[in-house]
């Protein structure tokens, strides 16, 4: 009987040992319309217009975070297709959107709204963005010269570009 009790207690402990904490990971969206698509311009216009729909400080924060995510995914896809100039443009837009988040968070807090969940969300987004940027950076060269047919060559310092992008996401 004692042996049975012992086994039972052992099993309970084992169950606790094998329990792992499951947490929903921050998920970036699918890439929407990409440059070159007929709908790309419409998508960009819609992004600008949505700003008026997302009124209110919390909604505004959601709007900027969504755009930052969207443009980061756009940049990642463009980097994968080695469309570097377009990719850098998308990444710059993503950076701009992410930069306004801390200010908005402060504004929301000043309005007396509890920001604990939002702060956590932004922190998770920052973590995910940094991880994504690291992933992209391993796939691209440190520097690159883009030579369009009829225009001046464009020098792209990816080390600097990624450094700045990461700096903007460190909270």
């Amino acid at each position: 009987m004692k042996k049975q009790y012992f086994l039972y207690i052992l099993l309970v402990f084992a169950a606790f040992l094998w329990t792992t904490t499951v947490r929903a990971e921050y998920v970036l969206p699918y890439p929407g319309s990409m440059p070159g698509s007929k709908f790309y311009l419409l998508s960009r216009i819609a992004d600008s217009l949505k700003r008026y729909w997302y009124w209110g400080s919390i909604a505004s924060l959601q709007y900027h975070l969504q755009l930052s995510d969207k443009y980061l995914v756009e940049a990642k896809t463009l980097f994968e297709y080695q469309q570097y100039v377009l990719a850098v443009d998308a990444l710059t837009r993503s950076n701009e959107q992410f930069t306004v988040l801390p200010g908005l968070l402060h504004e929301i807090e000043k309005e007396g709204k509890n920001v604990s969940k939002l702060r956590q969300k932004i922190s998770e987004a920052s973590e995910k963005h940094l991880k994504t940027l690291d992933g992209i950076q391993t796939e691209v060269p440190a520097q690159y010269v883009w030579k369009p047919e009829k225009l001046e060559p464009v020098f792209l310092d990816f080390t600097k570009i990624f450094f700045e992008a990461k700096q903007k996401r460190i909270l």
Binding site: W53, G56, A59, N114, S116
Partner: peptide, 16 residues
């Protein structure tokens, strides 16, 4: 009161 868009923001989005 909170001046948020009610079609986007749920009451649960304001934990306090």
């Amino acid at each position: 009161l909170y001046r948020e868009n009610p079609y986007l923001i749920m009451p649960i989005d304001i934990p306090n």
